[in-house]
Structure formats: structure tokens, C-alpha cells
Amino acid sequence: MAGHDGVMILAEQKNGRIHPVTHELLHRGRQLADALHTELSCVVIGAGRDDLQELIYRGADRVYLLNPGTMSFFLAGPVAGALTRLIREERPAVVVAAATTSGRTVVPLAAARLETGLTADCTELSIEPESKLLLQTRPAIGGNVMATIKTPFSRPQMATVRPHSMPPAPRDTSRHGEIIEKSYPILSGPEKFLGFIKDETQEVNLQEADVVVTGGRGMKSPAGFKLVEELAGVLGAGVGATRAVVELGWAPYSHQIGLSGKTVAPKVYIAAGVSGQIQHLAGMQTAEYIVAINEDPEAMIFKVADLGLVGDALQIVPRLTAEVKKLKEAR
């Protein structure tokens, strides 16, 4: 595997701009590159030139801008094609992308074409000192175990990492780096992007929110679930729902947290009237600080909570909303 060197990250993009999760990737990428005494590059596909210097300030030694203006980040096929081609040319040892709906689609396509190993949804990446191999750690079986995975025999070693599993890279405006533009002939596939519809029920993006307030069946009714939305409102938090609540129709599927929904890792997670089935815990147990409100002191949710409130969520949640309001007004 001689001849493979360097760490490459794939910039996450939204509407032609660099998405902030890219700065988390740069943080990880910089640490890995330093451990390997090598360079960090960042691949931007299709975006404009506006945000590129920022990537250098955040740790990139080299930025590749592929097909500016002629390709959108939306279609996985062409994006994966361009990424695969760049990897073949530049031969990095490690490639890291965000475990988002785009990263989790583009990177497997590239890995299969390159016949190399890929580990999904890592929460930790490091370099094994003796072997210099990438150690990729991820939750498995609904978050009940952690597994560390290596890619010993093929290159590059590829991984997607969970958003919010690392703080953004610090900004250093004295850093220097190079920006390289490349345009590949685009193989337009049989896919066509038609449009984007914003999820109006999500005032705050669940997976980017610092705080998530989730309601479970213990909220008793659609009116009870409204109390959860009100608390989220005053906190500027994302609104989460358990599978049971989505099945009852109190919240749309886009709010579902758990194995068959979204995974979140906010700074504070408040679970109100949530019993804590494994299916749900899998989607939230890596949150920094977990608060559980439930009338059953034996509820599983308390096992993963930092702060447990035994009592009726229908009473406690509105009280909390009022207290947060008061606190904000006092400032």
C-alpha cells in the first residue's frame, strides 16, 4: 500500500455553500493528519469559491474544488464519480465524510468502486501508533456495544462520522494552503434533480440543534404533545418524537428519533413521557446531557439519563416552559 498518503475529507454542502459540519470534519482530519505527519486535503464538489479560504483557516493544507458551477451536490451518482476519480489520482491513505443523508450515499458508492473498506457512523477516529492504521469506532446493535474496525489491506481507509461527534476546528487566519480547481467530464446519469421542499414542521433542524425536546406516549394526547413543542419553542430546540407518537399521528415521521428514525447528539436532550425502548435509546444516547421526565421511576429512560424527574410530564413540562421564559426575560 505504498504510495497512499494524506488525509482527505469530503466537504458537506447545502445549497451551494459549505455546511458547518465540514468544520468538524476538518478538526478530525487535522488530528489524523498530524498523527500521520501528513497533509490534510478537503474536497469541495460543485460549490462556489466563497468559502474555500475558510477551509484552510480551519486546518486544510489543500482544497480541491471540483467542477465549480457545473455540478450540484444533490445527485449522489455524479458526485461519487468525481470523488472516486480524485481519490484515484491523489491516492490518500484516509478519506472521511459526514454521516449525513448525502455522505452516507456518496461514500459507499465510491468505496465499492474503489473496492476498499468503509465504516459508517463513526463516533471516534484515531491512528494506531505502531501500525499507523486508522481505528474506526462506531456504535453497533442499537448503540448497545461499540466496535473498533480497521481496514488493514486496502486503501484508502474510508469512514463516515456522525455530525456533532466533535467540535468544529478552531479558526487560524495565519494558516496557508493551496486551492486547486479541477473539472472532470460529467457523466450525467439517468437521475435528475427536480427540487427541494423544506420541512416546514421542523422550525429547528433536529440534527443540528443544541437542544432537543422529545415527547413520548406519556404526553397522552396531541394536546399533550403540544406542551413539548412549546418547551422546544422557548428553548429554540428541535422537536423529537418517539415511534409510538409518530404512529399515533401526533408528529410527522421527520421528527422520529431512534433506530428507524433519526440519530441526534445534542448538548442537552430532554425526554418527556418517553419510556426508553432500545429502539429510541439508539437514536439519542450519545447526547451530552440527558434529562428524563417520567412518572414511572423504573422507566428505562432513567438508565441513560443524567437528570431524572419522576412525575407527570403533563404537569412538569409547562412548569419548565414557564421557568425558562422567566429566566430569559430576567436577562
Binding site: 473498506g117 465504516t119 456495544v145 473498533t148 480497521k150 441513560v304
Partner: peptide
């Protein structure tokens, strides 16, 4: 191409 080299329990039970 990948190998699982270690499986361990996460910090699941917090100091509640």
C-alpha cells in the same frame, strides 16, 4: 476489507 478488532460496552449507565 474491514476487520472488527475490538468490541466493548459503551458508557451506557450514567450517574443519574
Amino acid at each position: 476489507p474491514t476487520r472488527v478488532v475490538k468490541v466493548f460496552s459503551p458508557r451506557l449507565v450514567r450517574q443519574t
